[in-house]
Design a binder for these strands. Structure first.
Length: 647
RNA sequence: GCCAGCAUAGCUCAGUUGGCCAGAGCAGCUGAUUUGUAAUCAGCCGGUCGGGGGUUCGACUCCCUCUGCUGGCUCCA
């Protein structure tokens, strides 16, 4: 007999070789019907894998991430089975589960496969799923595994097996398909009730662009049809919020072939929005002791030789421009830090001045491969809300704290409430690949960890993810649809101070090396605005809305009064426009609603007589009549409230 | 850069197996209308069907090529 301990600490006795499914059945039939896998002593197992000694067991269902993972992983097998039946002789790469579903990389050989085939494969999958195929785990020797896949002609599988150790190789067989697989899997394909193959794309074998490109098919499955429908609905919603679509509709930005791909053109409304964001951050930074600096868009090639960027990125950058006479070479600046280092170097510094914080909304240009460009989130020219802090190693902790304050102010003002942090530290196994002294690294890493702890940040620490020049902290937000985006970043840098020979005179009258901290709360304005658009579905908070209100005169007769209201509100820094078309009010309201303008002010005879406006709020409807002054107060209060920096 | 797909008016899209002057709605312009909480009516303007080459009696439609876009891959100071 063995003892199974459940998460609630209750213990149950079973015969040796019991499996999680049987334990579930023992608890309730209903539970058993939902068990996809089980966590046995912290490791995810098949629900039908025999347990031979005392163990902690947690039953996993669709509600658990690991349950979903098992389901999707099994779905990948099911898809491979369907593909093998439909396209005999294809070869398989890898087929893992991913955050939302799964994929399988397939070498289709001579077959031409396009999106049209996806429906066919889906159909076959559903057919196979209904057969309730059981996933059977088999331990197999390396030699036998190699033989099986060599006979089958699956060279990708044999390559994978060659990298594995004998004794740790398992196969899973379901229906007509057997795959090299670590598992775990769901008990049977019966759980897979709804299937959607979402896309098809090329993917290099093992991510290596020098190797063969396989066809990757993405899909997602659900235990209930209804959940698939909800998922598809969510995708629809995401599509509607796509910043590229809204950017066009709301006239925020555009692209032009003539200007060049990946080079956004900000339209007046987008520029207004962006300016508000910049002003907001500038104000916050000013209060936090940042000094604005301005640097040119190009820099001499020597600058980047000093910084080391030339050696690392020179070949894959926009190539340098030359002076006509001397042939001197200049790069478009791909980052602002080298320029800022030279500003620091423009005069000697005392320890008493530190920390020095140089801030610049610096526009940088990076050559991105054409296939990688995407709306505003991946562009070739963008503006960083950059700043570089020059400080002593002992000041790192306080500086991190202060930067986190700024980032939190911004996220709060923009209603990003779900924030996660990734702390990237050195690989403790491989310390020599990093620049900077061991002592400094330890100090900085400890400081970052402490700050995260003190702030109660939802932080995940990744070892080995640090840049060679220093540890960093990245901020991720979840938007209104639950999608994750990486935005702000704080990075410690020991490299550039060294390369630029940055120094300060300490209290000991000796030269010392400052530490540099790169930080950008938004990351880039372009990317941030893109995320913001999708987060709020184009309904910007009042303080950011390019147009905060629109005046809708009932008829031409009230045009003059509208202009008077516009002027009065303008004096109070409230932005608005007039819809002076000879349209009916209903039409004007409809158009204003579609433009997502926060307030509509309807003015006619009544309003003109009493000096008021009739207020309608976007998405809410009629709020009643306000005096102009009361309306202005209401707007300004809301703006102040949303951009308040304390609490 | 690679794989796959797409490219028709400012926007969203029609356009049959290649066949007369390429269509619609919205937007724009003009006129009428002077309007009270989600679409007033009429007329007009607007396209070398992404660029170039080819096949054909004939190409928006078929082929090649370039450019751009989309979904992935690779990359990201």
């Amino acid at each position: 007999m063995i003892t199974i301990t459940l998460p609630d600490k209750s213990k149950r006795e079973y015969a040796d070789g019991v499996n999680a499914l049987e334990v579930a059945k023992d608890i309730s039939e209903g539970l058993a019907r939902n068990v996809l896998a089980a966590k046995v002593n912290g490791e995810v197992w098949d629900a039908n894998r025999p347990i031979v000694q005392d163990a902690d067991v947690q039953l996993l269902t669709w509600k658990d991430d690991e349950g979903k993972a098992a389901m999707w992983h099994s779905s990948a097998h099911l898809m491979a089975e369907a593909i093998e039946l439909l396209f005999p002789g294809v070869k398989f790469g890898i087929g893992p589960n991913i955050e939302n579903g799964f994929y399988y990389d397939v070498d289709f050989g001579e077959y031409e496969v396009s999106e049209n085939e996806l429906v066919k494969i889906e159909g076959k999958m559903l057919e196979l799923a209904r057969e309730k195929q059981v996933f059977v785990r088999k331990d197999i020797s390396k030699a036998d595994a190699l033989k099986y896949f060599t006979d089958k002609g699956d060279e990708y599988k044999t390559e994978l097996i060659n990298d594995l150790n004998d004794g740790e190789i398992t196969l899973y067989q379901s229906g007509y398909f057997t795959d090299l697989c670590r598992g775990p899997h769901i008990p049977s394909t019966a759980f897979i009730k709804a299937i959607k193959l979402t896309s098809i794309a090329g993917a290099y074998w093992r991510g290596d662009e020098n190797r063969k490109q396989l066809t990757r098919i993405y899909g997602i499955t659900f235990p209930k049809k209804k959940e698939l429908d909800e998922y598809l609905l969510m995708l629809e919603e995401a599509k509607k919020r796509d910043h590229r679509l809204l950017g066009k509709e709301l006239e925020l930005f555009t692209f032009s072939r003539k200007v060049g791909q990946g080079l956004p053109l900000w339209l007046p409304k987008g520029a207004e929005l962006r300016e508000k964001l910049e002003q907001f951050l500038k104000k916050v930074q000013k209060e936090a002791g940042y000094k604005p600096v301005i640097t040119p868009h190009i820099g001499n090639v020597d600058l980047y030789k000093t910084s080391g960027h030339f050696q690392k990125y020179g070949a894959e950058s926009f190539q340098p421009i030359k002076t006509p006479a001397e042939g001197e070479e200049f790069f478009l600046k791909p980052m602002n830090c080298p320029h800022h280092c030279e500003i620091y170097n423009s005069k000697p510094h005392s320890y008493k001045e530190l920390p020095i914080r140089y801030a610049e909304f610096g526009t940088v240009y990076r050559y991105e491969q054409s296939g990688e460009l995407h709306g505003l989130t991946r562009v070739r020219g963008f503006t960083q809300d950059d700043a570089h802090i020059f400080c002593t190693p002992d000041q790192i902790k306080d500086e991190f704290k202060a930067v986190i304050d700024i980032i939190e102010i911004i996220f709060k003002a923009l209603d990003f409430n779900d924030v996660m942090v990734q702390i990237s530290l050195r690989d403790p196994e491989n310390k020599q690949k990093y620049i900077g002294s061991d002592e400094n690294w330890e100090k900085a890493e400890a400081a970052i960890k402490e700050v995260a702890e003190e702030r109660g940040l939802d932080a995940k620490t990744e070892y080995g993810e640090a840049a060679f020049y220093g540890p960093k902290m990245d901020f991720m937000v979840k938007d209104a649809l639950g999608r994750k985006w990486q935005l702000g970043t704080i990075q410690v840098d020991y490299n550039l101070p060294e390369r630029f020979d940055l120094t300060y005179i300490g209290s000991d009258n000796e030269k010392h090396r400052p530490v540099m901290i790169h930080r950008a709360p938004f990351g880039s304005l372009e990317r941030f605005v893109a995320v913001l658009i999708e987060h709020c579905a184009g309904k910007f908070p009042l303080w950011l809305a390019p147009e905060q209100y629109i005046l809708l005169p009932i008829s031409e007769k009230y045009q003059a009064y509208s202009e008077k209201v516009l002027n009065l509100l303008n004096k109070q820094n409230i932005r608005g426009i007039i819809d002076d078309r000879s349209e009916k009010t209903g039409r004007k309201i409809r158009d204003a609603e579609l433009k997502k303008i926060p307030f509509m002010l309807i003015v006619g005879e009544r309003e003109e007589l009493e000096g008021s406006v009739s207020v309608r709020r976007h998405g809410q409807g009629d709020l009643g009549t306000f005096s102009i002054e009361d309306f202005a107060v209401m707007i300004n209060e809301e703006v102040d409230d949303l951009t308040a920096q304390d609490n």
